[in-house]
């Protein structure tokens, strides 16, 4: 039997920018990538969901705050609470923090400058749906491009929830944290952009390790349902 192709949704909000790149990268990694519009309260049948980068609702009030109340985000909330796989990239990470699906908050970069460059990262955990193709301690190079990426964890953050750390902190994040997951491990967020690093022509294909891990995990969901 051919291995099933998992269906992964990418939500487009007004102001999303990296939704098409995420759809392209997931399709290149052999997922069926499905565009989801922010007004959809009923999601199609999906095995994982990606909230992409960009500036949803112009980043008004606080980054990700208004997208947290979109109909599609409410549906994503229910999907995540039922154990569904959810990944937030950059603005998607900010949205997941604002809705409370992930701990902490992302604040203005300490330098007050927008940072846009490739940064080295260390994988802290290799047992998550996002990291199974890596080994803990592995170094990845991924691009960051954000003005509000300074991660502030809640005082009681379990260190086991840290997924990725910066080698050279580009934004003042506490503990150099670049990505976290929820306690159950099915909801993950990161500021760097794996979808912009899936081909050596783009400068790095390390992002493919993360997204292919997600595609693997989504495929396991399909197999479990058969």
């Amino acid at each position: 039997m051919a291995s099933p192709q998992p269906r992964i949704g990418v939500v487009t909000y007004p102001g999303s920018q990296d939704d098409r790149d995420a759809l392209w990268a997931l399709a290149a990694l052999d997922a069926e990538a499905v565009a989801v519009w922010h007004e959809e309260r009923e999601l199609p049948d999906l095995d994982a969901i990606v909230l992409p980068g960009g500036f949803s609702y112009g980043d008004y009030l606080r980054c990700g705050a208004i997208a947290g109340f979109s109909p599609a985000t409410e549906a994503v909330h229910e999907f995540a609470e039922a154990g569904g796989l959810v990944l937030g990239i950059c603005n998607g990470f900010q949205i997941l923090c604002e809705t409370g699906l992930l701990p902490g908050v992302l604040l203005r970069n300490e330098s007050l400058r927008f940072v846009c460059r490739d940064v080295p990262l260390i994988v802290e955990r290799d047992d998550l749906p996002l990291t199974t193709r890596c080994t803990a301690g592995r170094r990845l190079v991924l691009p960051v491009k954000h003005g509000d990426g300074r991660y502030l964890p809640p005082p009681d953050l379990d260190p086991a929830q840290v997924v990725l750390r910066y080698v050279d902190n580009p934004n003042g994040s506490v503990g150099g944290i670049a990505g976290v997951c929820n306690a159950a491990g099915n909801v993950m967020g990161l500021m760097p952009h794996p979808e912009h690093a899936v081909d050596p022509l783009l400068g790095s294909d390390d992002g493919a390790l993360l997204l292919a891990s997600l595609v693997d995990a989504a495929r396991e969901q399909v197999l479990a349902a058969i």
Binding site: R62, A65, I66, F69, E98, G104, V105, L152, P154
Partner: peptide, 8 residues
């Protein structure tokens, strides 16, 4: 619910 983030 929206106007402030109680964490910060």
């Amino acid at each position: 619910r929206l106007l402030a983030n109680p964490l910060i």
